[in-house]
Simulated scan of single mutants.
Amino acid sequence: MLTWRAHDLPRMESVRIQLSGNRIKANGRIVSAATPQTPAFGASYDLVTDESGATKRLSLSVTLAERERQLSIARDEENMWLVQDHTGQTSRAAFDGALDVDVVFSPFFNALPIRRTGLHRRKDSVTLPVVYVWLPDLTVEPVTIGYARTASGIKLQSPVAQTTITVDDEGFPIDYPGLATRI
């Protein structure tokens, strides 16, 4: 079980992680009070990766005061992504060849590409396409995120941050400046 608390906002994430080699099975929840940018919401997720650590499927459920919505994302054998939104509409897209999913407000999802590429164990840099999910509206889009291992941590360049995060020996974030710290 890993838990993060936002640095300066009323938000937390907690996730139960089961590891089998590079394979990850995770069940987590993000809870956020209202902020000037977002309404209060709760988001729960279930994630499964393959043997290489690449995302196979992600199910998300977001609850707001006025509604609840679900989103399902799965990668098929051809590395195409099937996205089913809250209306039941399904779309199929390559998302620029992405193998990972990232969810805004979540330190946990940064561990997926870090662990899959081994950046927590070696100095290197990678720029990767990811399937990016915005909360609480469950918008999905392709983005590119850059990761570079340095002496002080892993430099991260994403749609919402340019910072250096620290990770533990397993590649899971300890501190993500501007977002959250593990407690």
Rank of each mutant, 00 (worst) to 15 (best):
L119A: 03
D46T: 13
V31Q: 13
M1P: 09
R92K: 15
R16D: 15
L179W: 00
I73W: 04
L64P: 02
H86T: 10
V160P: 00
V83W: 10
D137Y: 06
R115P: 00
I174M: 12
L9M: 11
V83E: 00
Q18G: 07
T63D: 12
A148K: 14
F172G: 01
V167D: 03
E78F: 10
G21W: 12
L2W: 05
E51Q: 11
L99M: 11
V48D: 14
L47N: 03
V83C: 06
E78D: 15
R116D: 04
S52V: 02
T164V: 15
L47V: 14
S106R: 02
G21E: 10
D76M: 09
I30W: 11
S32D: 08
S158N: 05
P129K: 01
H86P: 00
K56E: 14
V104D: 10
P159F: 03
T117Q: 12
P159K: 07
D124C: 02
I145E: 10
L47Y: 08
P113A: 02
G42Y: 00
L128A: 02
G88N: 05
A6V: 03
D102K: 11
F105E: 03
L112P: 05
D137Q: 12
D46F: 05
P177W: 06
W81A: 09
A33C: 10
L135C: 02
V126L: 04
P36I: 09
T87I: 02
H120F: 14
L179T: 04
L47D: 06
L135V: 08
F41P: 04
L71K: 04
F105K: 01
Q18W: 07
W134R: 15
Q18N: 12
